[in-house]
């Protein structure tokens, strides 16, 4: 839940998603779900020369499982809070059946 919770706060921010096939896409994060599927808007491939076919695409849906990295805008990340959240997560019983 932490990642989902985290990515939700990034909605509306510009992120760069690196896929496992080495394609990197920059765009505005429109939405994300608990599988960390990602929807981007106003996208642009980082290496447009290599992926010219991406130039025609304006928005995309990325299945969470194909994401390798997501580059975040540093300003939108509250690291102290993230630490707290991680602690909280770690504290929770791992069985996950909290409620």
């Amino acid at each position: 839940m932490l990642f989902y919770s985290f990515f939700k706060t990034l909605i509306g921010q510009q992120v760069t998603v690196e896929l496992k096939n080495d394609l990197a896409i920059t765009g505005i994060l429109t939405s994300v779900d608990q599988f960390l599927n990602i929807k981007l808007d106003e996208i642009r491939a980082v290496d447009e020369a290599k992926y010219p076919h991406m130039m025609a695409v304006k928005n995309c849906f990325i299945r969470g499982s194909v994401v390798r990295y997501v580059q975040l805008p540093a300003s939108a990340v509250d690291t102290a809070l993230l630490q707290d959240a991680a602690r909280r997560e770690a504290q929770q019983p791992t069985t996950g059946g909290a409620h």
């Binding site: 932490l2 919770s5 706060t9 779900d33 608990q34 809070l81 959240a85 909290a98 409620h99």
Partner: peptide
């Protein structure tokens, strides 16, 4: 399906970062 996965009794417990972040 999505929601049922995400519903929780205590958003602060499961969705701590988002909740506090938005609050902040």
């Amino acid at each position: 399906i999505q929601i049922s996965q995400l519903v929780t009794d205590d958003p602060y417990a499961d969705d701590f970062y988002y909740q506090v972040y938005t609050a902040i």
